[in-house]
Amino acid sequence: MVIRGEVIRYGDDVNTDVIFPGRYLAITDPEEMAEHAMEDLDPDFHEKIKRRRIIVAGKNFGCGSSREQAATCLKYAGVEAIVAKSFARIFYRNAINQGLPIIESEEAAEDIDEGDDVEIDTKKGLIKNLTKDHEYLFHPLPPFIQEIIDAGGLINSLRKRISSSR
């Protein structure tokens, strides 16, 4: 999968509560979740996401609650990939299960600035920063996780598996 777009930048420890506040947890419709994405972190997020589709952040992105809405709301708001120094473990799994590509790269997370134009090749494990003409390598996801993302998330991948075993 190759993803290209401009970058929205955030810092360290962006937690699930600011990505998707607890007061909205009863929402089960993903489009409605998207309306509240980043509500307590960045009031301009919805303006930015109109042109910029890749989030780059510091360490421990998605720390806190297990709420899957944090990954779902970003995906439905239009985020196409997240690059960070590190991710909190439940958010990491949730993003994969939603089919949202997620990349750990300390080097990329340090070097990429707001607005940079980047191209991510998830299979090759390569990020190109076209603005700065820099490249960063990362460990590609294991094949079975890549397969979940390619299927568009865990449910689609399970459906495929179940129908092929019938």
Partner: peptide
Amino acid sequence: GTDSHTTTYGAFGVFSTGIGATEMAGVWA
């Protein structure tokens, strides 16, 4: 458990951990 503080049961010598809603649906299936 679909809650991050599922680690609580570790107090009883249990390996317990939080997961998301979609993967729990997979566990239920």
